[in-house]
Design a protein around this nucleic acid. Structure first.
Lengths: 263, 263
DNA sequence: TAGTGGTCTAGACCACCAA
DNA sequence: TGGTGGTCTAGACCACTAC
């Protein structure tokens, strides 16, 4: 693997784990170069990568910073909702609504590559931003993860737990997003009127080996959170943003620097 | 201006003028470097820029090529809905519901970087797949495009028209997706019940110069079309797929190639 | 002025692909 | 094998920001 990718991986994990605070600059390129024992150009390649992923913002003459939505720049997500919010320092709180064992849910089981009647472990959570519930999420996993799940602590990331407890690192996912009327129980949790239109997401997450290991079903409250898809040339990003935050970043549209005019 | 930007500008204008054919390789990086009298690294910076704009595709060991849509590469969904569906060989038909001039829509005007009371040209279309309406779309453009718009022909792509008639090539966009109850008129067009939950997309599309030039508002019928977001490592894709088609592609999940493990 | 990122060089060697 | 792109070095100098 290329050196710059190794450097990028190292920095990415530090950023996602919150090791680097927002508005706190990373070490300078020179320091990073000497720390990793490479030339500055190599460090810059790593930083470029993380910028494209939206994790960093570099400011000429000032330093390199962890991207925060308010700071007015791009974004990205690496799977976990928690990481997504952490990376942008959005105050996300999670409440566990329930943890069930041996649930039969043929569709989820099929997505996970299990037989239809396999018992699943299901974690139901409510995500809130600024005290307002935004996402009602049910995560389905194979029954053998249930013991790991019982140690789930709302302050941690489910993905981190599964990485440590199950040895699975999410590397890819596929998500289908539709609109759907909120079921009564979900509506109550989200504090919206039953039947109200919500975003419904089905996400299947794969480990590095290509094995599916989590299936998520999430209802999102309208006017509180939305999906923002961005494409610049070939670079895609897609992530959920609380509306207040995405309005902020929408305003920064006007500030988008004119890309090199043709003179 | 930086050397790599000068090189990029020179190459970009040659590409856009058709001086370089599609599928015809550019001179090698070494040749370009000696031609422009710079180091290879500098040429590569220029090429990187053009790749991000989606104008070039580089292939390791083969050469650098002008990106051509449909040449069997990634460049799918470069904005247009028509291209997106074509790329998947989905039978998309488009009906024009209306073309209005001098519409005042402050929000759309703001997104386009115009003053709030600017008169806009608005094209309303209904997209159908297999005879079933799936998308109700309103496209807002600056009033000066109205004459171009009057020649709009449902069999062509709006983006192609704007490229030829207005000289604008879409290179990036930003899209916000939420859930929303279908307004009566939209519901009638989509043949769904009024108030039914729909996906609502707001998309602002930018030209290579960074200038916004189209603002789209689209309502999508639930259970007929959905947004599929996929991530493999750092590679993102996001596209709308009719449900039948996305079920097909969901089956191909099992074939997802194992993404490069951590060494 | 001192520290930061931005650009650039003139090579070197590696990895990939086709003939 | 020969040509292509991919990565990397060990500096140099420029541009921007803050104090």
């Amino acid at each position: 693997m290329a050196r710059y990718q190794i450097i990028a991986d190292a920095l990415r994990s530090r950023i996602l784990s919150g090791e680097y605070e927002a508005d706190e600059p990373l070490p300078s390129q020179r320091d990073l170069a000497s720390h990793f024992g490479t030339a500055m150009m190599t460090v810059r390649q790593a930083l470029d990568l993380l910028c494209q992923e939206g994790l960093l913002v570099v400011e000429h003459g000032l330093g390199t910073f962890v991207a925060s939505v308010g700071a007015g720049h791009e974004i990205v997500s690496l799977g976990g909702f928690t990481e997504e919010m952490n990376a942008h320092h959005i105050g996300l709180s999670t409440a566990v609504l329930g943890l069930d064992a041996s649930v039969e849910e043929p569709k989820a089981a099929e997505m996970l590559g299990l037989r239809a009647r396999a018992g699943l472990s299901v974690l139901t959570r409510l995500r809130s931003v600024g005290g307002l519930p935004v996402v009602h999420q049910r995560s389905f996993m194979a029954g053998r993860f249930h013991n790991v799940m019982r140690q789930y602590d709302a302050s941690r990331s489910l993905y981190v737990m599964l990485r440590e407890g199950g040895g699975f690192t999410p590397t890819s996912y596929r998500e289908h997003v539709t609109a759907c009327a909120a079921p009564t129980s979900v509506a109550r949790a989200l504090q919206v009127t039953p039947g109200c239109p919500t975003l419904l997401s089905h996400r299947i997450t794969f480990a590095a080996t290509g094995v599916p290991f989590v299936y998520d079903q999430a209802y999102m409250a309208p006017e509180r959170i939305e999906l923002v898809v961005e494409k610049k040339g070939v670079a895609f990003t897609a992530e959920y943003l609380p509306i207040a935050a995405s309005i902020l970043s929408a305003h920064s549209l006007a500030e988008v620097a004119p890309v090199s005019a043709n003179n």
